[in-house]
Simulated assay, not measured.
Amino acid sequence: MDPRSEVLLRQAELFTGSVLLAGLPADDLLHNLPDASGWTWHFGDHRHLGQRFGARTTFGVTPPEAETDTAVLFLPKSRELTDYLLATLASRLTGKLLYLVGEKRGGIERAARQLEAFGKPQKLDSARHCQLWKVRIEQPVPAPDLTSLAQRFTLDLADGPLQVVSLPGVFAHGRLDRGSALLLEHLDGLPSGHLLDFGCGAGVIGSWLKRRYPASQVSLMDVDAFAVEASRLTLAANNLEGSVFAGDGIGDAPEALVGIISNPPFHQGVHTHYQASEELLRQAHAHLERSGEIRIVANSFLRYPPLIEQHLGSCQTLAEREGFRIYRAGKR
């Protein structure tokens, strides 16, 4: 059981009736709170919860429409995303209670101050290295417009400007990270066919691929609903077409790809998490055509070349800069 869930269950009498658990972990909490429902923007968690609890969980960037007696937000990593989530939950809870739970090392004490926008926060519990806070929503709160919270910026690339629309919570929100910048410089000469931007974030790589290779089919995939929505917005801002969808790792990717391009994620919340990246390297061959290849950017300290050579073929280092390396491997 996730320690944040354990803290909630210490106060289980507070969470009877219809409770919306926003950003809940994929554990047994819904089993212990039989009248509660879940809302998540992590596709892997949604799939796991859906297999056990069916329609009691929803996935997306907005909460389910059904009325609820109260709501609990499991603190995300991003402060901007926390602002949006608190506001969108508070807009449905006038006169009711909104709870916030999170790990101390995740910044729960700082985040609790964000509750002051809605009332006077009160700490209810501190255990399992987590804290539980509440606030009563005394005044009506307008529902936030997610797209109005987007950060829009222009990348001046070698082949012309690219418009980017980044949403709260998306990796490298409002900027181009150094790894992706380096990767963009080493994407020439890709085979013609179906290309995948794996872990697409705000859609920078996928949009560039579609512009550079207009005859190719381009798909963009991410585990995060806010990244999926941001990628759709970025494609639209550049008058480009692509298939954008949520997936929990390379197993959800299409087959018969000629190229998998990725700045693979290795953080989940406040935790370092390499599983998705390592599974990508182990399973990419099953999704590539015989002439297909993979190009990724990774921190220099990560020992990816042996894994790439074990499962794909000879690994080339195309570039190295500022602690990042670009790796390329063709399917053998």
Rank of each mutant, 00 (worst) to 15 (best):
A298G: 02
A276T: 15
C130T: 08
L75N: 04
S148T: 15
N32T: 08
G38T: 05
L288T: 00
P306Y: 13
C200S: 01
K77V: 07
W41Q: 08
G199P: 06
V228F: 08
A12G: 08
R232E: 09
N263W: 02
G102V: 09
D252P: 03
Q131I: 07
A227I: 10
N238Q: 07
Q268E: 13
A111L: 06
I294N: 05
F198Y: 15
L155K: 04
F43K: 08
H42Q: 12
E309A: 15
I205Q: 01
L195I: 15
Q131P: 03
D177A: 13
I250V: 15
D27V: 07
G95E: 14
R113Y: 11
S216L: 11
E6Y: 13
P168A: 14
L288S: 02
D177P: 11
D197V: 12
T82A: 04
L93C: 04
L75H: 00
L312C: 11
R152D: 12
L190T: 06
Q217W: 05
Q131G: 07
S91Y: 02
L24Y: 09
F118V: 05
G102I: 13
G323H: 10
L184I: 02
L81A: 04
P265S: 10
L75M: 06
E241P: 02
H273V: 10
T16A: 14
N263C: 03
E185L: 08
S207E: 04
G313M: 08
P161Y: 10
V141R: 10
L89Y: 07
T154Q: 11
S277L: 15
G23C: 05
D159C: 04
H48M: 13
A227R: 01
V297R: 00
T68E: 07
L281D: 03
S37T: 05
E278F: 15
P161Q: 05
H129D: 09
P140M: 12
P140A: 12
R303D: 15
D145C: 12
D28A: 13
K123N: 04
P3C: 10
L187D: 05
G323N: 08
Q11M: 13
N239D: 15
G174K: 04
M221G: 00
D159V: 07
